[in-house]
Amino acid sequence: MKKLINNPQNVVEEMVEGYVKAHPNHIKQLPENDRALVTNRTTKDGKVGVLIGGGSGHEPGFLGYVGDGMADGVAVGNIFASPSPDPILEVTKAIDKGAGVVYLYGNYAGDVMNFGMAAEMADLEEDIQVGMALATDDVASAPKEEKEKRRGIAGEFFIYKATGAAADFGYNLADVVRVARKANENTRSMGVGLSPCYLPQTGKPSFEIGEDEMEIGLGHHGEQGIEKGPIQSADAVADRLVNDILADIEINKGEKVAVLVNGLGATPRMDLYIVYRRVEQILSELGIEIYRSYVGDYITSLEMGGVSVTLMKLDEELEKTIDHPVDCPMFVQK
């Protein structure tokens, strides 16, 4: 394992320190908790606060998405581990503008417990109303009948995008939560892993895979997927991912989607665009209109090799949210 780090125990602290110092116009650390970061811009009174969070190692997820048009604050966990309720509660207090706060996070046992505990504390101790929406976009992580068990992967990006816009539009908490949940309901992802990532503290690969193998449905913490097989061409991988997604959600001819082809950290843009090329072909053959597309590293897994494809089915309201401009340190949309 080669990494450009100092002490493996301090990677999260040192990353956060560098990040905050690099983007002082965008983001600041709260004095109460090093893992609690909030926007440095003034937000409107009466705007619903948008709080995101999760483990580290997914950069630009999640701290990269704090800024205008997206999230107002982020709680930063250890590598691949949910943040504790402390930073979540501190961010909640800092970003509440009297209209409540929505928590957006992936459906993982740890996140569910820590964000749930923080929401209880916000309500009991701080009298702040909290709404929640979980990302469950990964079709490979559980069958359709058990949709609520699915984990959140790259589709979280679309949920942040839609929710951040809804909050900016001045929606109340109930409506912001409704949009967040609709965004999740309309979003599906699936990925493939080619090479593992290495946890800085252990130096060990997150999963075992042969030189000539790929793993379909791999999780973005290196959780094993649904099957391992010989590596295939970009077109074949794109076919498999898009077909599995379309088998899970009905998207008819003439309907519009937002597309995200997401790299897991060590996949070149070249490969991502080759995958996107095929995704576009399949969708246009089916008469599904691509309303907007995103190609790049949006939610990663350290230096993992691989790609995921995400489709979000759009209605008029979601189109508006997707068009909304964003200015974050790691993502800008004009």
Partner: peptide, 12 residues
């Protein structure tokens, strides 16, 4: 323990 780890074992 909770503050230091979060995760799932933290709350547990």
């Amino acid at each position: 323990f909770l503050s230091a780890v979060g995760s799932s074992v933290g709350p547990l």
